[in-house]
Amino acid sequence: MPIAGKKALTFQELLFTLQKFWAERGCVLQQPYDLEVGAGTMSPDTFLRVLGPKPIRIAYAQPSRRPADGRYGENPNRLFRHTQLQVILKPPPEFVQEVYLQSLVAIGIDLAEHDIKFEEDNWEWPVGGAWGVGWQVMLDGQEITQFTYFQQCGGMDLDPISGEITYGLERIAQFLQDVDSIYDIVWSRDPDTGAELTYGDVRLHEEEQFSSYSFDYADVPKLWQHLELYETECKDLLSKWNEFSKEHERITKEAESLTDPRVVLTYDYVKNRRFPTMGAYELALKCSHTFNLLDARGAISVTERVGVMARIRTLIVGVAKVYAEQERLKARA
């Protein structure tokens, strides 16, 4: 796109600029979550932090893997792994759309020169018991952002709710740089020589190799084994928490029934705080990614699909419930 007099942002400048923009509006900048996820929403920085009453503003880039979307690097608009910039605002500030539009100005989009629409698009992740209402933000016919007001997560109503802004960085970069193929996006420019590296230079080999891994090489029986191992361990952790939880309940009840003030019953809140709910969540995420690989491999029939998704849902919703309870107990301690 011809922005008079100056070059459009490189891919990395785009990321910096958006991160700086949100940092200046009170966001904690977090690093990408170091596990395979399909979307920024699945990072615990979104999925777990939106639970409970504690306010948070956080932003992070999240490489998002979708094995079935890989095209061996041959399709100019589809990727095995794309990058989202995820912003969570809990609770969302007033006139949050205007704040968002200012972020577009920050990356060089002159609002008066474009057609911008907020079109209804409600988000739903049944496996996470999560949904929200919102829009896809359309810029000259291109969807560049998903904007969601989270209403439920882990099957629980959220209060306060969170506003989630998810920028599709590749699409925005394509738009800013006016390139038809993702692989032609300028990723970086050497400040001394002006030499450019493209998205293709940086990532094409990953797309090629991970596409063939997910479609052709991934070992289906072993993937099923992985899935079961991750699932079993996750379930074990969840049932351990249930024991903790029962113990807490028992001690609370006993303490309430005590009449002698000299007797003090204590519950081990440190043990509670250290309970690895996030570990359980990672195991559930592993299951989800393994499922996606099996799916890309064509190894899941439609009939099985529903059943496996229900299994993963049990894990993820289970973790969310534990996390919420753990946070409540922490607040009490």
Partner: peptide
């Protein structure tokens, strides 16, 4: 569009919409 076309924005908006459609048709 939800904006008034002008001499300056028309080519940009046109180009943007055409690119999106081209990508969709390519798909």
């Amino acid at each position: 569009l939800n904006i008034a076309l002008t001499e300056s924005n028309a080519p940009v908006i046109k180009q943007g919409n055409e690119r999106v459609l081209r990508a969709r048709f390519n798909d």
